[in-house]
Amino acid sequence: MATRALSQRQLEVMEALWNSESGMTASEIVRSNDELQINTVQASLRSLVRKKYIKVGEIVYSGTVLSRSYVPLISKEEYLEMSCQALAKFSSSSLLMASLINEENDRETLNELEKMIAQRKKELEKGE
C-alpha cells in the first residue's frame, strides 16, 4: 500500500488523475496542466507506479500511437487522510518551525489557566 509522500510534480500528476473519471495517458496529463512537461510526467508516472500510487490501465490509441493509460490506486481522500496522520506525528520541537503552542498540555493545567484568565477578565470588566 502506498505510504510515501509525493513530490510537487507527482502530486500534480495525481491531481490530474483524481480529477479524471477514467485513466489518462501521459500526453493527456500534460494537456490538463500547463506547468507539466512530458519528460517530467513520464518520470513521475514511473515513480508513482513504483510507489504503488497508480497502476497501468488500458492501452489506448493516442493519435496514431498506442499509449498506456494510468489509473490511481489510492483516492485523494485516502492520500489526504494518510498525510494528516503523518503530519500529526511530527512535533514542533523536531522541526524548523515557530508555533503558537509548542507543547501539549494536560486538561488540569488548561482548566486552571482558563479560570485564572476568566477571573482576571471579570475584574477588569468590573473596573471599567
Partner: peptide, 14 residues
C-alpha cells in the same frame, strides 16, 4: 489557550 486546548492530551504528563 483555545489553540492549546485543541491540542491537549488526555492525561497529565508533566
Amino acid at each position: 489557550l483555545k489553540v492549546a486546548e485543541s491540542r491537549q492530551k488526555n492525561t497529565s504528563y508533566y
